[in-house]
Design a protein around this nucleic acid. Structure first.
Lengths: 195, 195
DNA sequence: GTCTATAAGTAGATAGAC
DNA sequence: GTCTATCTACTTATAGAC
């Protein structure tokens, strides 16, 4: 099927997503208007509705896409080796993945409140799946005696909070490379759960 | 000076703050209207302007109050003892203080984007002062050889992110008391920075 | 101190021309 | 596919009666 003259659908669509992500990350979902997004893309507000049924879907699609990327990359790596090796891999992966997508991370952690209940349930399900991966590693390590954590669930949430916090201060122009940051955090995670 | 008949200033004022805090925490600053706050208090929207010059001041006063409470309570305790004792005190204090004020914590960490530049600078200054307390403890411990942290600044931010993250999952009705949570986190912090 | 009424502007979303 | 124009509702903030 030949494309119609003047069709920019395959170009404008991704640009709408990018503009929304950028603006939601900087100012917050509720503070950003459809007109602002349109201006960033370079179209009028009405044109946005060729690419999204409404503003809420724009937010939900961004967050679902981010979480699905996260899960897909985890699945691709698969946990090889013992608990210690898997924990190191998880830690370095989490840091690297999050430092590559600061806007998506920010939106995914800050805008949960602005999801409609049904959409919230979907995102929460994906997040829970990711957390369970880490919890499984910690529980395996405890069973083998290489880790000592009094409460694997709390330890999981504590480690993820620590790792994700890196996005609040890391700057690409700063003194540390993502790999160096990964090493600093791995050192702390390793010791925190050590037997 | 006798109070005028019908004056509720000393009662309504705090109620406005409480309602704003509650609603900002649940839905976000940008998503909450002055009418919603007024409805929660039980007055009309116009009456709110007897207590705040504008919506932005409402947010700023809440955040500044929270940070000043935090700094005041820290100052009152003062760091006695060696680095290990001071770190334990800091950790347990941070957990307890944050679990007592979930709404204020949530607003203070989520709404930084919605502060006007001048207000943002004030809050950031207060936060920096708090972080410096922890960084000083870690640096003292490294100097004495009781701690081993490759990068005290990064370790400070990592520990604070881990501790503050407790507010995202803790529920009063849950299986753990605040003191028990404090002990779980202290165990991880202690090991994470241990020599 | 609180009310009602209102000003002046912006929101999300849609209709129809091109 | 994008535009202009518009609908309806809501926003912050103020003015003036009581």
């Amino acid at each position: 099927m030949a494309r119609k003259t003047g069709s920019h659908s395959d170009i404008t669509g991704p640009r709408v997503q990018q503009a929304a992500l950028r603006l939601f990350a900087r100012h917050g979902y509720a503070a950003v208007s459809m007109r602002q997004i349109a201006a960033e893309v370079g179209v009028q507000a009405g044109a946005l509705y060729n690419y999204t049924p409404d503003k809420q879907s724009l937010l939900f699609d961004l967050m679902r896409g981010h979480m699905e990327d996260l899960m897909a990359e985890r699945a691709a790596r698969g946990g090889q080796g013992g608990p210690l090796a898997r924990l190191e891999e998880f830690t370095r992966f989490h840091i690297a993945f999050h430092l590559e997508r600061p806007d998506a991370v920010f939106v995914s952690y800050m805008e949960l409140r602005n999801l409609e209940p049904k959409n919230f349930a979907v995102i929460e399900g994906l997040r829970r799946g990711y957390e369970n991966e880490l919890q499984g590693i910690l529980e395996d390590g405890v069973a083998e005696g290489v880790f000592a954590v009094a409460d694997p669930k709390v330890a999981t949430l504590a480690v993820i909070a620590m790792l994700t916090g890196v996005t609040t201060w890391y700057r690409r122009e700063g003194r540390l490379s993502p790999a160096e940051v990964g090493t600093l955090y791995w050192d702390m995670v390793r010791k925190a759960v050590a037997a």
